[in-house]
């Protein structure tokens, strides 16, 4: 059971609406944008942001899927190898502005892997990072351009984003420390 619910379904909805507005404000032209969701929960978040931008501005933003498993720097130290899934990047990303979407920004290592993976697909004009939760504890010089909520946390706690597309409810909660991460 979660120790504490930090964001409810309504909080998540409003936050994603705000981030969509920030993306619109920050990028003068929406035509060169691509939203890329990092598996697993970045993908539904990217889709929801695309739907919001469509509602607010009437523009369709393509959405891609990124699996970073093959780019991880901790493959050697994991007991089990991650099960791979397919990456799907819509078209040529050269000269496009990519908005990378993830659920939680923590050490920054997943983002580093995602940047490496994206650059193998071409030379984008820019890459921006949108996260629903920033929990601190960065180990690499990486920061997000769009942040849903800053949640100062202890290393031992687990912050879990749950979304209806992948779980049963929309919710962000802190769970007590577990033996092994999810």
């Amino acid at each position: 059971m979660p120790v504490k619910v930090i964001m409810t379904a309504e909080d998540i909805r409003r936050t994603l609406a705000r981030i969509a507005h920030e993306i619109i404000e920050h990028n003068k032209s929406l035509s060169g944008l691509i939203l890329v969701g990092m598996l697993t929960r970045g993908v539904p978040l990217a889709k929801r942001l695309a739907a919001n931008i469509k509602t607010f501005e009437g523009t369709d933003i393509p959405v891609g899927i990124l699996d970073i498993s093959l780019y991880r720097d901790d493959l050697d130290s994991r007991e089990f190898k991650p099960l791979l899934n397919s990456t799907l990047i819509p078209g040529d990303i050269s000269q496009k502005t990519i908005i990378l979407v993830d659920d939680v920004l923590y050490t920054g290592r997943s983002t580093r892997a995602a940047l490496d993976a994206l650059i193998d697909f071409g030379r984008p004009h820019a890459i921006q990072l949108a996260v629903l939760v920033d929990r601190g504890h960065r180990e690499l010089p990486i920061r997000a351009d769009y942040i849903g909520k800053n949640i100062p946390s202890a290393h031992s706690e687990e912050i879990k984003v749950e979304l209806t597309e992948t779980d049963t409810i929309d919710q962000v909660a802190i769970y007590p420390a577990q033996e092994e991460g999810q």
């Binding site: 939203l35 598996l39 697993t40 993908v43 539904p44 889709k47 695309a50 739907a51 369709d60 933003i61 393509p62 959405v63 899927i65 089990f80 190898k81 991650p82 099960l83 899934n85 397919s86 799907l88 819509p90 597309e165 992948t166």
Partner: peptide, 17 residues
């Protein structure tokens, strides 16, 4: 193209373990 019908990859029937 519109991203609306983009679906998550199906869960594999097996795990790496």
């Amino acid at each position: 193209e519109d991203g609306s019908t983009l679906v998550l990859p199906p869960k594999a029937a097996v795990t790496a373990s």
